[in-house]
Amino acid sequence: MFNRSDVTFLATLGAVAMVVWSCERPPTPVGPNRPMFWGGGEEQPCPTKKFTGGGRIDPPPPDYASTMVGKVTFGFNIHADAACNVLKGQFEIVHHPSQTKYHSLSFQHFDSFVNEQGGQCFHLIMTMRAKHGNGDWHQHSVGVQACDNGEPGSSPGTGPDWIWFVTDGTPGNGHGDTGPTPLTGGNIQAH
């Protein structure tokens, strides 16, 4: 299910942690260009530029030490150009056990690729505002990797579509790493 792009994703998430030091840090600058840490500047095509999706996952997935466990629902619409610049987008994430909600504010990176199963996938790094229960809104950097591996996109425990969320900040209370988790409901659709 996972391939060499996972290594890149994890490396990127490490970079996310370096870029956004804490919830209190001012927002990451808005801009369509890839951040310097991502890929060394070589041209990276976006074979698929449009993805929509929404659904549910129930991490932890098998054989993965998740730090963000329990029901997560999400919805999104991401459109980019051939140079991987995000032209328009919106992303919503809800971590139910902690009653944490995330709304996208800006997008720092997008790229897409075809995985070893022929599925169409994307990486996304964005700044989101987050709120825990009735607390105050604050900001987090969030990384997403997702794949459209066929239709219908979900079934209990098997996907075939899957998604992976990682937020910066100390794991717990709606922060952390879901691990790459198959959809138990919903769909991820490459267009």
Partner: peptide, 8 residues
């Protein structure tokens, strides 16, 4: 939330 798209 709700999302949707039309592709080729």
């Amino acid at each position: 939330f709700t999302s949707g798209g039309i592709g080729t």
